[in-house]
Design a protein around this nucleic acid. Structure first.
Lengths: 221, 221
DNA sequence: CGGGCATGTGAAAACTCCGTGAAATCACCG
DNA sequence: CGGTGATTTCACGGAGTTTTCACATGCCCG
């Protein structure tokens, strides 16, 4: 666990560092935004604790700069309630905030929380993307131009089989045996109906599912 | 540093004990799983070294039993590569493993590592927060809008597994094997009933547990 | 350009699965 | 060994999903 602590007050840096190290973590320190950005370019941290009011480059601007090249979770340390408001006013890409005075225990809890969440995001892995069509296998979500769409189980399974076999011509029989199961005894026109529903849900990306006359279907970008 | 050494071979117990004591620690010995569980009920250890193959009660079952009342870190000692596989196949709640033959130095290093980790866990006060739903892992408390709610053990474990897998689609089978244990042979609709109870207790935050028709459930904010 | 065949479409029927409540069983504690 | 609370099983009902089917549309080839 490697944490970057950014604050212009040495006292605060030291207190935080001690807590991080007490829990077996490692801590680097920076005393202004410029330095923080530089250090982030050189080292990969698991999380950043960042004060807002600082000389040279304030916390907001530093986060904005860091976000250009890194997704490292940031927890803002804000001295006053008004600054807290700003956090909501502007979308600056921080993951959490704590207002001073803070209990180190609370700060540590939040560090663990943001690291956990960012790890979850990383390892979520399996994500397919074709232009504006995104399929998140872990969460079983499908997005069309960033907007989540609701698919029925069969529609999802069918889409999943299609994307797994991108560019491959698939007969109705094969789709039935793979998506429905080898023991499905039914009309092979069932596939057509589901393709219709799926296409309807995929909106503009219906174009990816092409009909192969006399054969079946194919998923192609 | 108080360590419990569990192995049916006296030779191995003695070697390990000597190393623990050499480093200024204290060691108790148990020669089977039953004895180990009994001793854990009576004494609080900092870590447990546990063999897998043992008479009366094997290491897997012993850990499972101990986990019912204690979070003491466990390092498994496995004689063969196949057993190592099992460690990954089933979630049994051990924290590390070493395969025989092992160097005592390596074992000691791992003991120090798991103890450090477990201490960090204790003091970090692991807290999950999703809007007004707060889960305090250390105290095993759950709060809805600041008000403490009472959950049964299974409800709590289920909720805990859900939040640990935020955003991940979970099948009933997976929930059963992870929350109930891989050796649970029962109706998978049991999950539904517990989800119902849990939802009831979570009040407005029941919304976080979404049903995935034809699949299972997902915890999503 | 039109017949024939394959696919698209819409709606209704059939089916599946989940939420729920209640009863049965289990586990724990005195 | 009885009582209490937790867990598990189970059946019902309804919402949502899948399947079927008839008709519409479109494509290919003569």
């Amino acid at each position: 666990m490697k944490i970057l602590i950014v604050d212009d007050e040495e006292m605060i840096r030291t207190v935080l560092r001690e807590y991080v190290e007490f829990e077996g973590g490692e801590a680097d320190e920076a005393c202004d935004g410029m330095e923080a950005v530089r250090m982030c370019r050189e080292t990969t941290y698991d999380a950043i604790l960042m004060d807002i009011m600082m000389p040279k480059l304030d916390g907001f601007s530093a986060v904005k700069e860091i976000r250009k090249f890194s997704e490292t979770p940031v927890i803002m340390l804000s001295a006053r309630a008004e600054e807290y408001d700003k956090l909501f006013g502007f979308e600056i890409g921080s993951d959490d905030y704590v207002t001073k005075p803070f209990s180190p225990k609370e700060v540590m809890a939040r560090i663990h929380a943001v690291i956990r969440r960012s790890k979850a995001k990383m390892s979520s892995g399996e994500i397919y993307e074709f232009e504006g069509l995104k399929i998140d296998v872990t969460g079983r979500n499908v997005y069309v131009d960033g907007e989540k769409i609701e698919l029925t189980p069969k529609e999802y399974e069918l889409l999943f089989y299609f994307v797994q076999n991108e560019g491959v011509a698939l007969t109705r029989e094969r789709l039935l045996s793979k998506v429905w199961g080898y023991d499905f005894y039914g009309d092979d026109r069932t596939v057509d109906t589901h393709v219709k529903m799926l296409r309807g849900n995929l909106k503009e990306y219906r174009k990816f599912i092409v009909t192969l006359r006399g054969l079946g279907y194919k998923f192609e970008t």
